[in-house]
Design a protein around this nucleic acid. Sequence first.
DNA 1: AAACTAATTGCAGAAAAATGCAGAATTATC
DNA 2: GATAATTCTGCATTTTTCTGCAATTAGTTT
Lengths: 263, 263
Amino acid sequence: MQITLKSFKVEQPISNMLKKERHAFIIKQINLHNKVLSSDLSIELKVSEDTIRRDLNILSEEGKILKVHGGALSKSFHYPYQLNDIYAKDSKKEVAQKAIKLISEGMVVLTGGGTTMIEMARLMPEELEATFFTVSPLVALELSEHKNLTVILIGGQLSKNAHINIGSKTVTDLLEIKVDLCFLGANGIDLKEGITDSDFEVVQVKKAMIRSAAKVAIMSIGEKLDSVQKMKVCSLNNLEYLITDLQQDDPKHAAYSKFVKVK
Amino acid sequence: MQITLKSFKVEQPISNMLKKERHAFIIKQINLHNKVLSSDLSIELKVSEDTIRRDLNILSEEGKILKVHGGALSKSFHYPYQLNDIYAKDSKKEVAQKAIKLISEGMVVLTGGGTTMIEMARLMPEELEATFFTVSPLVALELSEHKNLTVILIGGQLSKNAHINIGSKTVTDLLEIKVDLCFLGANGIDLKEGITDSDFEVVQVKKAMIRSAAKVAIMSIGEKLDSVQKMKVCSLNNLEYLITDLQQDDPKHAAYSKFVKVK
DNA sequence: AAACTAATTGCAGAAAAATGCAGAATTATC
DNA sequence: GATAATTCTGCATTTTTCTGCAATTAGTTT
């Protein structure tokens, strides 16, 4: 005996559907795809767009969906944004915590800028004795709140965007130092393209920082994995560590762990 | 100069995106990378730059992002330092206002640290075009909020008390520059003893700053006149200006005006 | 079952929104 | 101060929405 399915049973909109049924169908689609277009629904449900629009208006008034021009979105649709707060602050804190574990007493460390680095500076153990070089005035100020840290700010022209020191002075000063471990943030991390960034001057500084360091650790929230920016900083095999907020055995990590120690 | 990588791999945007979806995408990109370019978004989202610009304007009006020429920035990246409880803030603001009058277009200026200097940085005219050297990370950060200022931070070891860079590196770097005007705060000002301070390393830096400057201006609230600290920075005839919050004809000024131009 | 009322649906035309484009104005950059 | 990039402005086009209104259907009453 053989059963042949003639048609795929997708969400099967019955012709001559009742209003309530249509509404249920719409809600289901929104839950499934987070959005619907009036034009799509009109075709799928074989009713005029006006009817769909009326449906969407009703559902919107009932607070079940978010109506927008052209269709509707899931009510749980929200901006990935926390007012007054740093984006993904908790993730960044986790990254920072993991990074701090790599620092041992008496070490000489070099750090870049960025919110993750500032979180790290804040979370540094109170009693730790170490020397920190940094190109970021903000990181320097945070670090200097810790009594046993020696903080050395590498000078240069202060970049208005990146809030770190850049330019030839910064680069040549960096060439004169030698540190045990360098922590860098990244704007783009990708298997093929390695570490990438979008600002030419920032890239120069990061390259110099990498040259000055025995080991380099990249700190990044998991979201940035597999994204590429316009300019290359270095390839993955220049790195020692990759620190993210993800679990060590997260599938996103797998490919990277061939190149670097993933934390 | 700009190097462009061939491959672009980003959150792939769905075609026929609703406006809100585009907005969410934009905000996510900003949160992730701290900035976006209109031109990039136009390509990524496959809409005209005009549409992106309109999107950015809306998001900016909603206070979600910081729109700038060419794209937008993350708002939280704007650094969160506010020293609000400053002693004698109003007096210091007056001093700062008077000091700013000494700065003219295109000048090269050197500044020290301290709350008065930070007030000056904040009150700087928005459009002023000038070059500022400073040994204070906080002053540097404040100054860098002004678009036409070039801010160069003289590096060194960050002093935990004075919050300025100190040490031999700072001093030798200072010897290599030559500026039109140097603004210094003072801990003690006295007719006989001149400018005095209480921290040895800070004194070394201030001396170096004075050597690098064609003219030196001391900024101080009136209260500090006729007080002496442990270590000498320089005598009064090394100075060009003395700027206080007092009236120019204040009796306290009289004796000083024989040595310096009192403002 | 007929008649009546209320709700639903589709449609035409007007209104509003969204988008892209051209040229002018402004801003950045060197 | 010239050049290039970006933004603004007004406008045309397309798409979506809104507003009656007529046709249809469903439900109720007599």
